[in-house]
Design a protein around this nucleic acid. Sequence first.
DNA 1: CTTCATTTTTTTCATCCGAAAATTTTCCTT
DNA 2: AAGGAAAATTTTCGGATGAAAAAAATGAAG
Lengths: 204, 204
Amino acid sequence: MATKLTSRQKEILEYLHKSSRTTGLMPSTRELQHYFGFASQTAAMSHLRALEKKGVIQRVPGKARAVIFPEELDREEIRDIPIYGRIAAGYGDSTAPEPEGCLSIDITSLGGRGKNETFALRVRGESMIDAHICDGDTVILEKREARNGDIVAALIDGETTLKRFISQKGKTYLQAENPKFPDLIPTDELIIQGVMIALLRKAA
Amino acid sequence: MATKLTSRQKEILEYLHKSSRTTGLMPSTRELQHYFGFASQTAAMSHLRALEKKGVIQRVPGKARAVIFPEELDREEIRDIPIYGRIAAGYGDSTAPEPEGCLSIDITSLGGRGKNETFALRVRGESMIDAHICDGDTVILEKREARNGDIVAALIDGETTLKRFISQKGKTYLQAENPKFPDLIPTDELIIQGVMIALLRKAA
DNA sequence: CTTCATTTTTTTCATCCGAAAATTTTCCTT
DNA sequence: AAGGAAAATTTTCGGATGAAAAAAATGAAG
């Protein structure tokens, strides 16, 4: 079952992947035929059969374009998370800024919490270094109410910063995780944009 | 174009997602019909048309099961990465141990390096804490030759540990990023299992 | 009540598409 | 040279599937 693929079979499989990713559709046997210049559709059919026999694809008999990649079946649901470099003041409900990128990850790896809206921020500065959050890291946040001890993205002076949210004896304030940075006692209102649920770092 | 969906349309869209994720296939219009108990296939058709008009799906005229989610088209290629808790001694080429989980993420977020085989390890212990890698973090590694300064997973005494790889003046050794841990000079041979390319941390 | 969009029905077509049987060709291995 | 697997061809079927036209319910809003 786990026999190696022939070079032709690799070509076919690669095309299946490419087609499925770029067009969003599985090719029909005739589309395969035309792409590879076969004179017959049966050639495509028998290749699919061979690939199925070797376990790299699955097929559903009788159904159109019914080629499945087993690894995608096992996969958890994928969440697409917009990455913002900076969140402007008016944010919160409606005016989402332009994302500067996007991050796709399965929801299990995010800790299961999938219900709320999620977004990501690139960390700038060292103010959370003692929580082992570094400059350049990408922090993934969830929109929900902050609880004591949560790391949150908050709006301070029109700028979004990452801090630890502290709620003690009825008072709430923000704390940096770096002795060089002072605590922030909110002047009027504390606007929490999101609560950190995960962190992603690329190696240099 | 960005009109809100009616409740019926939400149901249909949700079924499309569910079907596509669990069976790996888009339902045909007749499958939609039977699922929702319509007496006609045309009912399904017109719902699909409505969803397309509102921009939440795309369709390719004339082709079977040709419903596409736009967000999946934009998505980068997803990589499925097995997570190992422990890598046994004989590893490296053939004998992969049982993964204790799986992580799916787009390859761009991994730093582009997509060619080599990748795997992930759960970090245990504090030996790399000064590199801001904590107990419980998941480290994503790539199989390739280590360069000076890389953080690597290496096999020491039949155990896999994460250390910084140092190569100076022809000598190579491993360095913990925690003053409490000593450097490791290899006794005979240094077996590098992978080089760290990214890190993922779930908030507590 | 009227209007209008949404939702559903009935019927009919054309064609997309998987499937099968019987061969032939190509190429690698012994 | 022989054997065998992989690759490709030719031809034929029937079911799967999208599509269209005409119309009838349904339900919410003015």
